[in-house]
Design a protein around this nucleic acid. Structure first.
Lengths: 235, 235
DNA sequence: TGCTGTGAATTAGTTCACAGCG
DNA sequence: CGCTGTGAACTAATTCACAGCA
């Protein structure tokens, strides 16, 4: 069997790896030893060939005629995503959303160690949220010299996001999960993922009122829904 | 000038429309009357041709040599996304994340009226969160007969998500913003958008440790980053 | 036989490049 | 001119389809 790895990995593949990992954990808890790409399709709605192709960017993990060892594949994907060891992560912005994220169980499950929380609001600085005390963002550079966090979660208002992001980057943060609805202009070496509820709601809103006269009975499959009939213009 | 509209609209286009709307609101507040696709690119990182193409699915909104009327375009996009009038939205799951979402300003900005909150936890039922009282999910069908919400935000644990989603759909919900890390199997007519922090963190985690020896100095541009050099395999 | 791994084909989405209008 | 709107070219991502191994 040929070997692979070498071409560039599509970003959507990385997202799906996280999904596979989740399913593998579930299977492991159910004491399932082996899984096929067809099983994964059943559990995730992601096409079986897609699953195999996603893995093929990183190597060969299955046995023809058999499938994949749940435990082994789990380890492999964790290694690929670098979540086979704990990663220090910082949160900036201890408002509603930020505070909610501190308790998010997915963080720990993915070996993300939320090691510090920062804010610029004197009202919040010093407050305890879960097991952490909110620190002054001014101290970020100093504190992160010790923490060495490379991933940050940015949950500040849009108006502050750019400024704060620059502070983070100056203190060696290399990846930002940005919840602020604004474009961050940062050096290309910094990876930014934007989470926008607005965008998702826009998609829903558009579809809801468009769907007035739907009529097919298929089951919904996967992660991303595709294109859709349009609406009329104006002007 | 030719007319358009008629082909299917890519889903990413709908998400970007929400971004354009945000920028238009900012421009309006700055009393800017007119905007060009190049200006939009500057503000959003989204390619100017992309912006024009996105709009072209719905009609013609600009004047050659001039650009777009900020106020007019704002109205048009709001109409396309059906957020030109208030939409009732329900939230299910009053845990950390759910509670945080109740206060999310983006909801109101996008004319989403959060009209009710449900949970199944007796500890939470009856509690006040912001200006709403948490109701028993058992009463959902009855309550939604009056509310007529078609959009729901699902912020319950993964184990409960499928069951709850079916309750929602039975009560005529047609679009779900799903924060639970699990595949919802629902009739195809129901639109589901999954929000997965896990996936985003996976992408960040992968990149952080891969990026160890980067060296180009470009500015980061847009909404989605693209593919990336891979890592080694195992087995 | 039942599965994987993967080139090839397909489909989707983005960007270019330019005709044509104000 | 300076801009839009859009067909055409391109790039990315998904899915097919099948050779080949256990």
């Amino acid at each position: 069997m040929p070997m692979s790895s070498s071409n560039r990995v599509p970003v959507p593949t990385l997202g799906r790896l996280a999904t596979y990992l989740r399913v593998l954990t579930e299977l492991e808890q159910a004491h399932t030893e082996t899984v096929s790409s067809a099983d994964v399709e059943q559990q995730t709605g992601i096409n079986a060939a897609q699953f195999r192709k996603d893995l093929s960017y990183f190597g060969e993990f299955g046995k023809p005629g058999v499938g994949y060892s749940v435990a082994r594949l789990q380890e492999s994907i964790a290694a690929i995503l670098k979540i086979d060891r704990r990663q220090p992560v910082v949160l900036v912005g201890a408002g509603n959303l930020g505070s909610a994220l501190i308790g998010y169980p997915g963080l720990t499950e993915h070996q993300m160690d939320l090691v510090a929380v920062f804010d610029n609001n004197p009202q919040r600085i010093g407050c305890q949220v879960r097991n952490l005390y909110v620190q002054d963002i001014q101290r970020f550079a100093t504190v992160n010299e010790t923490l060495q966090a490379r991933i940050a979660i940015l949950a500040v208002p849009a108006g502050a996001a750019q400024r704060v992001a620059e502070v983070l980057v100056a203190a060696d943060v290399r990846a930002i999960l940005n919840f602020a609805p604004t474009l961050l202009r940062l050096p290309a070496a910094v990876v930014v993922r934007n989470v926008s509820f607005m965008q998702e709601l826009a998609v829903l809103s558009y579809h809801v009122s468009s769907n007035e006269q739907e009529e097919n009975g298929e089951e919904q499959a996967g992660e991303q829904n595709n294109s859709v009939r349009p609406i009329l213009h104006s002007t």
